[in-house]
């Protein structure tokens, strides 16, 4: 059995056309079996504003077996291992169906971020905290989101300056001198 390239290509095309869902998928390399997905953290949760990278591996039997998914971005959640990103979600296991897709699986991950299932934990420590001290759980989850999942603003500013044709070193140096102010940094570079 070989990888069903036709179906995977169709899925990739469909995801790239659909911007509304917010999930993204890209090839990791030249093969169709290693992909990377991005899931936006849902609104009104401690994960809001985060951009979660998900490692996706497709078996040759896909879509007759579920895609293997794992969070690369660190996340504090009862059903996601805080150590290695392993996910406990029924549709990625025994509830998988070949009518589901990579996109629906990523949307399921987003739904999982919105509604943790502490009774079926992947990370017992997180699940215990979720049940015992919800306030502390939310603070910790938010802290992890800010530390690991929210794209760094300074990186974005640096990228914008680099897009104007300056080297990374020059952009970083100018930003440092300008205390992070983009306009002052630009004036220094252009002046």
């Amino acid at each position: 059995m070989t990888l069903d390239a036709g179906r995977i290509n169709k899925e990739l095309k469909e995801i790239s056309k659909d911007v509304a869902s917010g999930v993204e998928v890209q090839l990791r390399g030249s093969g169709l079996n290693k992909l990377v997905g991005y899931v936006p953290g849902p609104k009104d949760t401690p994960y809001e504003g985060g951009r979660y990278e998900v490692d996706i591996n497709l078996d040759e039997q896909y879509p007759f077996v579920p895609p293997k998914m794992r969070f690369v971005t660190k996340v504090w959640h009862p059903n996601i291992s805080s150590a290695n990103g392993a996910i406990c979600l029924d549709v990625l296991k025994d509830q998988w169906s070949p009518a589901l897709t990579i996109k629906t699986a990523l949307l399921s991950l987003q739904a999982l971020l919105s509604s943790p299932q502490p009774d079926d934990p992947q990370d017992a420590v997180v699940a215990k905290q979720y049940l015992d001290d919800r306030k502390l759980f939310e603070r910790t989850a938010r802290h992890w989101t800010e530390a690991f999942a929210i794209p760094k603003n300074e990186d974005e500013v640096c990228m914008r300056i680099m897009e104007m044709g300056f080297s990374k070193e020059a952009a970083q140096k100018a930003l440092k001198e300008a205390n992070g102010d983009e306009n002052i940094a630009l004036e220094k570079l252009l002046g």
């Binding site: 069903d4 036709g6 179906r7 169709k10 879509p63 070949p98 009518a99």
Partner: peptide, 13 residues
């Protein structure tokens, strides 16, 4: 087809 996503009038993989 909901499994292979190929047209019914075409072939599965």
């Amino acid at each position: 087809c909901g499994i292979c996503r190929s047209p019914f009038d075409g072939c599965p993989p």
